[in-house]
Design a protein around this nucleic acid. Sequence first.
DNA 1: GATGAATGAGTCTTCATTCAT
DNA 2: CATGAATGAAGACTCATTCAT
Lengths: 197, 197, 197, 197
Amino acid sequence: MAPRTKESFEKIRTEKKALILDAALELFASEGYHVTSVSKIAQAAGISKGLIYNYFESKEEILETLVFTTMEELLDMIDPNKDGVMTDEEFVYMIDMNFKWLEANSDFLKLYFAMMLQPTVLKLVEVKLMELTIPVFKVISNYFDSKGCENPMIEARYLNSLLDGININYAIDPTSIPLDAMKQKVLQQYAPYYNSI
Amino acid sequence: MAPRTKESFEKIRTEKKALILDAALELFASEGYHVTSVSKIAQAAGISKGLIYNYFESKEEILETLVFTTMEELLDMIDPNKDGVMTDEEFVYMIDMNFKWLEANSDFLKLYFAMMLQPTVLKLVEVKLMELTIPVFKVISNYFDSKGCENPMIEARYLNSLLDGININYAIDPTSIPLDAMKQKVLQQYAPYYNSI
Amino acid sequence: MAPRTKESFEKIRTEKKALILDAALELFASEGYHVTSVSKIAQAAGISKGLIYNYFESKEEILETLVFTTMEELLDMIDPNKDGVMTDEEFVYMIDMNFKWLEANSDFLKLYFAMMLQPTVLKLVEVKLMELTIPVFKVISNYFDSKGCENPMIEARYLNSLLDGININYAIDPTSIPLDAMKQKVLQQYAPYYNSI
Amino acid sequence: MAPRTKESFEKIRTEKKALILDAALELFASEGYHVTSVSKIAQAAGISKGLIYNYFESKEEILETLVFTTMEELLDMIDPNKDGVMTDEEFVYMIDMNFKWLEANSDFLKLYFAMMLQPTVLKLVEVKLMELTIPVFKVISNYFDSKGCENPMIEARYLNSLLDGININYAIDPTSIPLDAMKQKVLQQYAPYYNSI
DNA sequence: GATGAATGAGTCTTCATTCAT
DNA sequence: CATGAATGAAGACTCATTCAT
């Protein structure tokens, strides 16, 4: 019989890789990275343990792939046109997106915060995450600056903390916190800025 | 490392037990619960591995003791006289204490958030923590209610999220966030309440 | 690497089979049989892993084929006309050939000695090798006997050990031992025999 | 009860370590390093798998310990007073010892040659072995030099090869080669040197 | 109380081999 | 013929826990 085509193999790889990543994210988020064994991931993905290593070098590579892929996707949201400048619309959009994204990706957020809290475990991941985060603060801080805010970096940190706090509480227990009400309060609190004082 | 001294758990009569708890907290916070082996704790505490099991049933019991002991200490801070009522002074004191405590106990906070994020791992701990937390929200919510706030529970959640966000960012990287400036901003944001609108 | 070219196993009809054997020999010799994975062989041979199993039943069969093919080739050298009798010319020729062959096949020698040293691993191979070796000793021993040597079998073992010693040292590190000088010394040591005392 | 004394623990460690090394040497020699699993070593030593790691960092460390310990012991034999000079008595003694040692340590020799043949596998070990070997050649070469030998290094290599050849054949199959006869032949061959030509 | 040797279940990872295409 | 995805058994190593002393 004719061997499978290159594309056929490629398709299998892409699909199976996604399968593994999905299973891994759910398990990492709910049970924790260290408690999740590769066997469990394989089982959840409905494949054999060995096959995992056909797609990833190691358990850690699964984690890295998971984190970096999602982070980049996430950063696109903050500064869509990547010009380092944030308009009023983009500011409101960012807050809006934070809440939209939160609902769809609470699994990822759990994993993200868990990782940030234990840097020793995953040094490499942490460093790269820091690098990805810095420009975000820049953009937001620039925005506050342009609005005449006295201490824009502090304001950016404050907003970031507020959102992180809401996010983490939602990640911990989605039923504990009413997202819509929270969003309204955040928008209202920052209205003076985007309504151009 | 946090300025928690070797006398932290002095209320725990046995000196050895305090030694173990101190060592465990530092390691759990910096490396993570699962990555920290009992041997490492013993080594850090300057005792033998076997001795740990004279004082604790298991590694998990160390964690539980750590968490519950500290949580109770913490809750005392929120509502000192346990009357379920919060005065303006107590409200400002609570915010003040949050920051004071944060500086001294970032190790514990790391551990606390890490645990809350992965409930499956430590079901028992989580349930008890929830129980401890509920009354706090009640007290704060009551306070906002007494001030004529329309949706006091939402306001309590919002404040809690804000503080959690600051706390977690500080726990992750103490250099990234200026505590004093943050405290000023929080107090200023809630001034309308405790200055009796 | 040894100067064995890709055409080494040309007597093996299938070209692919020769490709596999060449790759396997080089890898087995340099890395060791157990450390060499079938994937690595396939990669070195420029074919797919699965295809190897079209030509060989197992990894072990590759090794066996490698060894037996080469050993037979080698034995032809010792007693070319297979009459069990060795002339003075054939004796000198044998020593000469040992050195010639050594230079071209140090890869094989590494593998050969490695296998002889760990009989349990490859019982089957060992037995067959022994069978192949015995007649060689006979022929050489007969030669010494015909020269009036008192203890011809001892003499044969001695010569064999000497050559093995040179061979193995060359196989281990070709730069460590000057083959020409060694050959001269061997020939000189045995000159009394072939110069008919 | 009083805890065991320091000496008591020390004794246990020494004994158990020797137990493991003995079991490992026998298995490494007969089956090969890679084929010998840590479980098998533990089983042969009559202890649990895990305990092995209480005494050695890794399987490789067992091998290294085995090799270096024995090699140093061995080198003492060559140049007992470590003055780099070899007398006639020491020369004869060295040959004598080679054969004595051979009988008692054929297991080690198997392992030694097997390792030398596959340098890639155990780079570290190989390098150190080379270092240990060089001075030996120096001493022997000096000896031949002092005897007026034209090319002492060649002579040293030749003798070394001869002994290696005998050793390896004995290691492969002790019944195949009569040690006494071999020793007599070696001594006789080199008699002109130590009988002061 | 105190020590650390000892256990064994569990973890990540590798690899010979099979098989659908 | 050829390919490489897929499997599963096996291997090195870790670690919570037990226990003799």
